[in-house]
Design a protein around this nucleic acid. Structure first.
Lengths: 294, 294
DNA sequence: GAAGATCTCTGACTAGAGTCAGCGTATGCG
DNA sequence: CGCATACGCTGACTCTAGTCAGAGATCTTC
């Protein structure tokens, strides 16, 4: 632990020195507060005040005041959208606001440039790769997996995303009604289990098991949000489901999937699933796998 | 540039999310302000108020108030040291203050642990290595090399450090008077040049050339502060000196060194210097090198 | 159509992190 | 000795980033 702590501290210190010090370039993170944060939050496309408040986790009164300040500076315009709820206000950037956004961009570029300039090509390559790795691992380390009720909001959101994706990827589309049926009891203990992966609180993946026959479980609804792919969430979900299966003394796990779901096929193969013959009549299934648990 | 900017931004965002978010562990950097910063600044050994003010770049009035607050909490004691300037105050941590420091330590450990806990051993290894690399490269990218007057404060400080090190590492010690002599003119243009490397403004290395004969330059006083070794500063200094030599159309660079200075020997070999016979009567030299410039 | 919820806005307030000008004492130097 | 300067201390002030409690308009639901 000693070494780890030292490494993290040294890393932190170097970052603050280089990003927050007067001598180095100003921090990219400088605009994480106050008016500028709001300006960035509004973005090129604009945003409803409501959404902005939730995204930035700001007090409604405070946000209102910040927006008024931005309006006074002519950077932002707050408009009521006809046909919509007249209480809601929609915020868009004015021309000046957009220019300000572009200036932020230019500043950041200059900062990154001044960060990389003293390094050789090889070194700056290394730096960027290390940053990308850290970003990935930090996000990865923010993932929490837990069991939920299939009827809850998070589960329903995941399922909707999952079905949307199936619909988009299956050549003939996907009929959502197939998935519905009397699932809730099937995926709730004692018969089954639904796990959800969350990243910073927001659901980014799911996976479930249900009982096919005594000692035989089936994996269903494995899905990871596109924004969170590549973090190993799928594998983690799968492993968690297998742990549950083992605890129940299941001897076999089966699953079906579609030939177009490459990531899933790769995941299952890597986890030791072997292709078998059709074992069900799921009209959307094209591949069947199983894994024997020991 | 687009890609670099995106990488740096994503990295930054992931860091702030994970370190400054309510959901994740609290930031290690949390104590970079106010009372706690002062407490950390005082440190186990104590510090004079003056030194503290400079180190933390605080207003004297503000620091005084912060210290009074810490004193009221019983974390710090401010004492006049007998025999010294009676205006100066020396700050030491009380027992409670030391305990607080230890608590900070424990907190940081817990944070690092919670950061690494969700990762596999391999992943956390990768994370720490990437952090170490970034730290190194960020420090590296803060290094600035420039020519200075050998009689200036920065140069004199470097020379003193250099001689101290020679004295410590040479089996028979090193007599500083050897180095003195009429150096200033030798290391000033047009006859020679002295370069100093600075990290965040503080000198961390030096290197000079002087003319031995027409077309033949000699490298002198190559030194990098122990705290800044491993960043490639030596190589960068050497390359800068060689660039100067080339600009002067020198055809040969020579140098002497001591057998105990391993890092220097390695540096010279790697840069293409080849060992030659003794070419001067420097009593402290044991190895002689040269490199032909093209 | 009334009750309650939702959305934005306003005013009053707070806590933290400083800044600034000047005070009193101690010291160093001519 | 006298004077400029250094050091720490105090009081008064500022600026930022909020929080909190409601008010008024608008929408949803029964």
């Amino acid at each position: 632990m000693r070494r780890e702590l030292q490494t993290v501290r040294a890393f932190n210190r170097a970052l603050t020195r280089r990003w927050r010090s007067a001598s180095g370039p100003a921090p990219l993170a400088e605009r994480e507060q106050g008016v500028d944060r709001v300006l960035l939050g509004v973005g090129r496309r604009g945003s409803s005040e409501r959404a902005l408040r939730e995204r930035l986790a700001l007090d409604s009164g405070y946000l209102s005041r910040l927006l008024r300040a931005l309006e006074r500076q002519g950077l932002v315009r707050s408009e009521a959208r006809s046909g919509e709820d007249a209480r809601r206000r929609f915020i868009v950037l004015t021309r000046a606001g957009l220019a300000r956004l572009r200036r932020f961009d230019a500043q950041d570029r200059a900062r990154v440039r001044s960060l990389l300039a003293p390094l050789t090509a090889c070194e700056s390559q290394q730096l960027l790769e290390a940053m990308a790795l850290i970003e990935r691992l930090l996000r990865r380390s923010g993932v929490v997996i837990g069991a939920v009720d299939p009827a809850g909001a998070a589960a329903r959101w995941c399922f909707a995303q999952y079905f949307d994706e199936l619909d988009a990827r299956f050549p003939g589309g996907f009929d959502r009604r197939t998935g519905r049926g009397a699932v809730r009891a099937e995926l709730l203990p004692p018969r089954g289990r639904l796990l959800i992966a969350r990243l910073d609180g927001a659901p980014v993946g799911c996976g479930a098991i249900r009982e096919l026959a005594p000692g035989v479980l089936e994996i269903k609804r494995m899905w990871v949000a596109p924004s969170a792919r590549g973090l190993g969430i799928g594998r983690e979900l799968l492993e968690a489901l297998e742990r549950i299966a083992r605890r129940r003394r299941a001897r076999l796990i089966r699953l079906d999937t579609h030939a177009t779901l490459n990531e899933a096929l790769r995941l299952y193969r890597k986890a030791g699933y072997r292709r078998i013959a059709r074992y069900n009549d799921n009209p959307y299934a094209q591949r069947w796998f199983e894994k024997r648990l020991r």
